[in-house]
Design a protein around this nucleic acid. Structure first.
Length: 608
RNA sequence: GCCACCGUAGCUCAGUCGGCAGAGCAGCCGCCUCGUAAGCGGCAGGUCGCGGGUUCGAGUCCCGCCGGUGGCUCCA
């Protein structure tokens, strides 16, 4: 198991607002605002809250800010800390507040909102029972509309434990119709050591960036100008990994009673009209291809295709259910340009999708089965830390009104989660409009949480598309459909895996499992002989007999993170052995081919 | 889509005040035949993202577009 590399510990989410770290970060946001106002006279200030790992403040600046400016701002912040100003809270009347912030239009907007709508300064509703009062915090010359809390004095902040990190754009109040403000992010901790640990963690994340490793390991490329933005090209090595990933999930699914189907990449638009997707998600579809009176779309999701297939296969008896259709389907979604990111957000994506057609009574059992598949798959990929978010119906009108169905489905999901012994938390109002769902949030070795698997209950689309089965009563009923993805999409999951493993894939997934390195030309023939024997035994093996030094070729294999290096020199030829070096640098010495194969089989089995 | 920054060889990058486009690695050729992370020499490699403008002269300055990065918004 690889060692976890994590940022310094943070208080749990519930306790964060009362923690010292929160006060420090919140106070630094104010101090930064003061420094920015001094450097940019006439700047308008918006909001500056603490966030995970740090804080930010949003500004409307009179001139663009540069990265170099951050150093000056940081230096001024340290001076303010050294001046050791007390933070002074006071309650102000609406008139006083309006006067105090008369040159700060964003603050004036906040004041009116607090007074009229009972929200806090970030626009969130106040806790029940709290009346809207206006408070400010002042340190030195800087006074800000703020609920606190803060440290008592600026001097309580460790001047060596914070750093300004980056400049970004952010919409006022997060609404893309509002003006774009300049956001400055900073990080802050108790001690310099914690700051250093945090910065090392960030560097490690950069070092593992799958876009960089993907190129260095020769797995995939993007050709935005030639092929198009967000559409990856996979090399032979990259394709092998995709193939292994999909074969693995396919094998598990088959074992669990899934059947694999195939549906094409283009579909008549009319199907998406009936399914309801066109009305809601047209902006995520590529524009239509027009053929006479027909319009075709690149398939952005499989559900309508699978459901059409279900219908075409004839009348279904309740005895056939559950029917589980799975497909590794490449879908095309017109993601907005600015949202594309490496393999984690692409326009051509391959979902490991499945649709389970079942009776309402079967929801619990099928949900539990899907949970088990997901657990088995995630464990194989060494994702052992995960929790489940159970998204339930909230108060909104977007939820289809069928009290009984919702209650039944939510109860079934809870029961299955309990039966699976999974750690889950409930999120009210997060459900899709068509039913409740469960998402798996898995932690990688950097402690980052990724939403991977999802299981969604759907009461709506089967009815819309006219799906039926004949029940024991001889009458037609509408099946429930579970939408389910295990790894989400092959592309995104591969991106996450690359970062999870830092490019050092476990042996079963490594595109090249072993490189045979003959020390001199004299052993080249033997090296090829060894390679072909190992290939016969099912390993992916290459020979590096280039006219370079052995050290050079070991280094190359090392950089490619090949699990096994098999060094063969005079001695190995004489004894008919190979000398095994691992990518950890460990040298296991000479062994027979049989012994090496045994070791490889064990490692494959163990998933290391 | 929005804000900021960026775009020079396959990769990482240098290129000063506007004055003949560079380095390392990778690649190719040759030598070297080596015991666990970089042997030596040579050669080749460019529409300086694209288009327009300013200028005697533009990689360098200005405008537009394309693409990328970090965020924001979004993510059925």
């Amino acid at each position: 198991m690889p060692q976890k590399i994590v940022p310094p510990p943070e208080p749990p989410e519930e306790a964060y607002p009362q923690s010292d770290l929160y006060r420090i970060r919140h106070s630094l946001a104010h101090i930064m605002a003061q420094a920015v106002l001094e450097k940019f006279p006439g700047a308008k200030i918006a909001i500056g809250p603490p966030v995970r790992h740090g804080f930010y403040y949003d500004f409307d600046l009179p001139r663009p800010i540069k990265e170099e400016d951050l150093k000056d701002i940081e230096a001024r912040m340290r001076e303010i800390i050294a001046e050791d100003h007390p933070f002074v809270r006071r309650v102000v009347s609406p008139e006083e507040a309006r006067d105090l912030f008369k040159d700060q239009p964003y603050k004036l907007e906040l004041i009116e909102d607090i007074l009229n709508r009972g929200t806090d300064e970030y626009g969130n509703p106040l806790p029940p029972g709290e009346t809207p009062i206006l408070t400010t915090y002042r340190h030195g010359p800087f006074e800000d509309l703020c609920r606190g809390p803060h440290v008592e004095r600026t001097g309580q902040i460790n001047p060596k434990a914070f750093k300004l990190l980056s400049i970004a754009g952010a919409y006022w109040r997060g609404d893309e119709n509002n003006p774009m403000l300049t956001r400055i992010y900073g990080t802050a901790w108790h001690t310099e050591e914690e700051l250093q640990q945090y910065l090392r963690w960030r560097e490690e994340a950069q070092r593992r960036d799958h876009r960089r490793l993907g190129r260095e390991l020769g797995l995939f490329y993007f050709a935005p100008e030639e092929i198009g933005p967000g559409i990856p090209l996979f090399t032979p090595k990259g394709e092998i990994i995709r193939h292994l990933m999909e074969s693995f999930v396919r094998e598990v699914q088959t074992r669990y009673g899934y059947q694999h189907v195939w549906t094409a990449h283009i579909v008549k638009e009319t199907l998406y009209e009936r399914s309801g997707h066109l009305a809601n998600y047209a902006e995520f579809m590529f524009p239509p291809m027009v053929d006479g009176n027909d319009r075709y779309r690149l398939k952005p999701m499989n559900c309508p295709s699978h459901m059409t297939l279900y219908k075409k296969m004839g009348k279904h008896s309740y005895r056939e259910l559950p029917l589980r259709f799975a497909e590794f389907a490449t879908l095309y979604r017109y993601e907005k340009k600015g949202e594309l990111q490496g393999l984690t957000r692409v326009r051509a994506l391959t979902q490991d999708d499945a649709h389970i057609f079942c009776t309402p009574e079967q929801i619990e059992e099928e949900f539990l089965l899907a949970l088990k598949i997901i657990q088995e798959v995630l464990n194989r990929y060494r994702f052992t830390d995960y929790r489940v978010r159970l998204s339930l119906r909230g108060q909104g009108e977007k939820y289809i009104q069928d009290e009984e169905k919702w209650r039944q489905a939510e109860a079934a999901l809870r029961a299955a989660l309990d039966a699976a012994g999974l750690d889950y938390f409930e999120a009210e109002g997060e459900a899709a409009f068509y039913g409740p769902k469960a998402d798996f949030l898995a932690q990688d070795v950097l402690g980052r949480e990724w939403q991977l698997s999802t299981i969604q209950v759907d009461f709506i689309m089967p009815a819309r598309l006219g799906l039926t089965y004949i029940g024991p009563d001889g009458k037609e009923h509408t099946p429930v459909v579970l939408h389910r993805a295990v790894t989400g999409t092959t592309e995104r999951f591969l991106g996450i895996l690359i970062e999870h493993y830092a490019g050092a894939f476990p042996v079963w997934l490594a595109p090249v499992q072993a490189v045979v390195i003959p020390i001199t030309d004299a052993q080249a023939a033997y090296a090829h002989e060894v390679a072909s024997k190992l290939r016969e035994a099912g390993l992916r093996v290459e020979v590096d007999d280039r006219a370079e030094t052995m050290q050079y070729r070991i280094r190359q294999a090392q950089l490619q993170k090949v699990p096994y290096m098999l060094i063969v020199g005079k001695r190995e030829v004489a004894q008919g052995t190979v000398s095994l070096r691992l990518r950890s640098g460990e040298n296991l010495g000479a062994m027979s081919l049989e012994a090496f194969l045994q070791k490889a089989r064990e490692d494959i089995e163990a998933g290391v």
